[in-house]
Nucleic acid binder design. Structure first.
Lengths: 266, 266
DNA sequence: AAACATGTTCCAATAAATGGAATAGTGTTT
DNA sequence: AAACACTATTCCATTTATTGGAACATGTTT
């Protein structure tokens, strides 16, 4: 007989001492200003001795660096780890050529995003030649409810999972067009499921529009989507409509290649 | 009284159980093919029970994902962590505009690299418009002895540290031009120190040349360098020479801004 | 120089990791 | 289809690292 555990108690997953140290790392990285020991102490709610050792370990592993003023900043180890994580990601590898094609077809910025928890993580990006800022977005997370990729991706989820996710979202109004609550998002998702296309009509950032399409990857493995994004002054709403075919076609191509990659038997 | 500890015993740093789990993560990420449990078991040299729990922790923390076939692949958590690490890196932030300028001046790929242990980690990159492959290189590591950035960076080290680093290098011949041993590298470093410029004359990859300059950041904090890289068919050795002024000028600019960033009092 | 804030070290109590072995699960061969 | 080999997972007494309160440094302000 199943012990009736609380379904929402996901953070209760015990990852031992490792998880605790990782939480400290997360905390330091999340801060938007370098923290000193006392700051971390306050935020972490951990005894001095314990925290001190944890930070020491993080530093000697190269995940954090402690500056001359005692402030903790991210170390290079993370970049190294992430590079391998990124370059080996087979889903990204499969999608990459298609992203390039989509970029060539539209001339605008193309994103590949994957659902992780309640957020979208940008896994890859192809940018226009004017903006020469490297992999800036890769690894960045955005909320699902106000991005094209987000809405496209969660439209793939089975009803139960979608509802569970909806209940965890804290809706923040970023622009006048931002969807305000779960009901609005639920309605939008219904449309996305029908049309196979999601839009972002300046819902996340004023002056930014995008078209997105879910990637039906068969197995539930990666819940993902792609998008074409551009400035509102250049991209009309009509233009988005005209691109929707290309975008969903591209998403279909990625899905096809991905299934091939998993092996023909599966 | 200083306890006479073995200077070379760096890996002996005890990072407790955290370090052990991290080592497992490193191992899985380093493999060039997805590993299953038995593979990791073999490589990690750790008892079954222990390893199993470690992998379980890594998975529930999202650092690894276990596929349907039981193979372990990198999770998205790493990307998220690394993004914050990268976007907040103040040294990179300071350097970025200068990298863009250098790219504009030369039209070729520009790199920013930082010394980490015995390797160079690429921290940022500005690429030519033709190659639209996103942040591919960021986080990648290269050996110091066969890259312009590597040679430029270690030229900044004090003699003792340089020698210590030299002794750890395993020289692998990548091309006919690769420096073959510590003596050759030592000689080259002497030149770099005098001229303030390092070259890579197809020493790492055939058909690839580069000019690099060390960033004299004052405090020993980041041992770093920048470079301009291009294909040999387009970039003559003379061209590299002609760029050396611009490159070292750019490195000086970054160093200046970095010192300003640390605060005028320091 | 005293009071204070911050960072580091110490060590008995405690909780977690360890690792050998038994068990369960998977797919392959006869 | 049964036996087999291989792999993954669970179990639990032992060992070890973590815990956390408090004492000790260190540097800064009043």
């Amino acid at each position: 007989m199943e012990p009736v555990t609380d379904e929402t108690a996901q953070p209760a997953t015990d990852t031992g001492t490792f998880g605790k140290v990782l939480a400290v790392l997360d905390l330091v990285l999340s801060a938007d200003t370098p923290l000193r020991f006392k700051d971390v102490l306050q935020l972490a709610g951990q005894p001095r001795g314990t925290l001190h050792r944890q930070l020491t370990h993080l530093v000697s592993e190269g995940l954090l660096v402690v500056g001359a003023d005692g402030s903790y900043t991210p170390g290079l180890r993370l970049l190294r780890l992430a590079h391998r994580s990124w370059s080996q990601n087979s889903f990204r590898t499969v999608a990459a050529p298609h992203l390039l094609r989509l970029h060539a077809a539209t001339g605008e910025t193309v994103h590949l995003g994957v659902l992780s928890g309640s957020d979208i993580v940008y896994v890859d990006k192809v940018e226009g030649q004017q903006t020469v800022r490297m992999g800036s977005q890769v690894g960045k997370t955005s909320p699902v409810y106000c991005t094209g990729i987000g809405k496209a991706a969660i439209a793939l989820l089975p009803e139960a999972e979608l509802e569970r996710l909806l209940s965890t979202i804290r809706f923040v109004r970023h622009t006048p067009a931002t969807l305000a609550d779960a009901a609005a998002l639920r309605a939008e998702i219904a449309t996305v499921r029908q049309s196979g296309i999601a839009f972002d009509r300046e819902e996340h950032e004023e002056g930014i529009r995008c078209v997105a399409a879910p990637i039906r990857a068969g197995g539930k493995e990666p819940v993902a989507a792609i998008s074409v994004t551009g400035p509102a002054y250049r991209i009309s709403v009509d233009q988005l409509d005209r691109w929707s075919e290309v975008v969903s076609g591209c998403a279909a191509d990625i899905a096809r290649d991905w299934r091939l990659c998993l092996g023909p038997g599966r």
